[in-house]
């Protein structure tokens, strides 16, 4: 199974409590919410639980936009 960028987008929106329709691939995570460490933990655990994608903290530091996250998710180890 390949990771669908749109599923990542929806998972991120959901994890951050945002309306899915307002989130686009180029949206920055820091525009969605006042990004703090807990919101990053929420994003990571939603990707892990819902899509089986494991991203480490360092990887999360690199992902500025939803599209960055989808790209990292595509390359990340899967359970």
């Amino acid at each position: 199974m390949t990771i669908d960028a749109d599923r990542v987008r929806r998972t991120v929106a959901h994890a951050l409590g945002a309306d899915e329709s307002t989130i686009r691939p180029e949206t920055r995570l820091s525009e969605i919410t006042e990004l703090d460490s807990l919101s990053l933990v929420e994003v990571a655990s939603a990707l892990d639980d819902d899509l089986g994608i494991h991203l480490s903290g360092d990887t999360l530091s690199d992902a500025l936009t939803v599209a960055d996250l989808a790209e990292l998710a595509r390359r990340a180890p899967r359970r």
Partner: peptide
């Protein structure tokens, strides 16, 4: 480090 992971690239540099 955890604060840098969350904020340095996402928030402070921008």
């Amino acid at each position: 480090r955890p604060a840098y992971v969350s904020h340095l690239v996402h928030h402070w540099l921008p």
